[in-house]
Design a protein around this nucleic acid. Sequence first.
DNA 1: CCCATAACTTACCTCGACGTAAGTGACTGA
DNA 2: TCAGTCACTTACGTCGAGGTAAGTTATGGG
Lengths: 131, 131
Amino acid sequence: MGKPTRTKQLDPAAICRSSDPMAVRELLTKVGDKWTIFIVLSLDLLGGRARFSELERAVPGISQRMLSSTLKMLERDGMVTRELFPEIPPRVEYEMTDLGRSLLRPTQGLVDWVKENWQQVRDAQSRYDER
Amino acid sequence: MGKPTRTKQLDPAAICRSSDPMAVRELLTKVGDKWTIFIVLSLDLLGGRARFSELERAVPGISQRMLSSTLKMLERDGMVTRELFPEIPPRVEYEMTDLGRSLLRPTQGLVDWVKENWQQVRDAQSRYDER
DNA sequence: CCCATAACTTACCTCGACGTAAGTGACTGA
DNA sequence: TCAGTCACTTACGTCGAGGTAAGTTATGGG
């Protein structure tokens, strides 16, 4: 036998109280990127279905490139569906899936947390910075 | 007068059902970085208080540089406190604050979501990729 | 003939997140 | 004297997220 363990050891699989900590990180990384949250919440506010140009206007500051690539990621992940209407000029509508909607609940939890606690974060930052 | 607005307009402040959408993005960006979630959850699993080297061992793969900088950010944001014991060799303990603990609840919501839904995401990705 | 339109794609560039490796300081025990 | 310990910091390099701007497609309208 080796020496007794001196410090608590964490089961790598338990690190997130989840069987797949890497999946948790992956989701957080996706949701934490620059535009996903705005697109998802805007789409929801627009009734769960909207076309490209509507989202472009709904999310101030986003470029076509980022809107396009973020929507593609959301589609790949099964969060939204894409429907192309072969008209001229083309029309494309994006719609939230049940999966996407189900993610909205825990996400809203974080939005609410910000509403309640962000000022405390700001205060803590100020205190930390001035010394 | 210009043309009448043809599409729904979103109040930029309403985009997140929050008075501060930028704060929401900021939080998501923080939580969505590579190590924060692992450090926070590990610290919680270790009883809410742990020293640097414990966290180093608890979070597999993290470097001292990233552990140090991430902890510094968490401290600045008021999520953890840092206590230095001037011994030799030095000992430093990090402890979750009430603010940090309060963030754990909505975060756990996302962890749970992954547990329930990640397989669906994986499936959607596979379907999308093979065509 | 030319422009506007919607929904993109492509090319190019910047900048910061993150990784790796080494150094630091002060002391203790061999 | 020298190695070991802990909690870092510093220097350096890479890589990809994201910004900007222009091009593309097909068509109807002036």
